[in-house]
């Protein structure tokens, strides 16, 4: 099992071992046809330590984050949260912080909701 399994579990707050491989997430997914790996596979790849393969896949960006899988999973596994964590892991790996608190004042304007900046900071800074 790779170090990434723990990282993904930590970021997502989800325990992929709860998955009973029923496939309801994949049955539900509206973006199925555009994905290289499918929701139940995300979960399985994290459980079995194949996270790097998943990180290298373009498929993780076709997830719409519609949360249909989260809503319908009978085991509260939340595949969408796992895939979001994988995307974050990719960003974090690519070279540290993409955003620091110092940049925030410069980004503030009347149009942009402050919440969006907070979310962006959380997403694009390391060690969140």
């Amino acid at each position: 099992m790779s170090q990434w399994t723990d990282t993904i579990r930590q970021i997502s707050g989800v325990d992929p071992r709860k998955c009973m491989k029923c496939g309801k997430c994949t049955a539900t997914c509206p973006a199925y046809d555009h994905m290289e790996y499918h929701p139940h596979q995300f979960v399985d790849m994290v459980t079995t330590g194949r996270v790097e393969e998943l990180m290298a896949s373009k498929g993780i960006y076709t997830c719409l984050t519609c949360f249909a899988c989260v809503e319908r999973c009978p085991r509260s596994v939340e595949p969408a949260a796992i895939i979001e964590a994988v995307r974050l892991a990719v960003i974090r790996q690519q070279g540290g912080n993409h955003m620091t608190p110092d940049q925030i004042p410069g980004l503030l304007d009347e149009e942009l909701p402050q919440q969006a900046i907070t979310s962006a900071l959380r997403k694009y800074s390391k060690g969140g």
């Binding site: 029923c22 496939g23 309801k24 049955a27 539900t28 997914c29 319908r72």
Partner: peptide, 14 residues
């Protein structure tokens, strides 16, 4: 085998 029921490992999503 005898009655040809399609057993599919998976779940109905909607």
């Amino acid at each position: 085998e005898e009655y040809g029921v399609h057993y599919i490992k998976g779940m109905v999503g909607k």
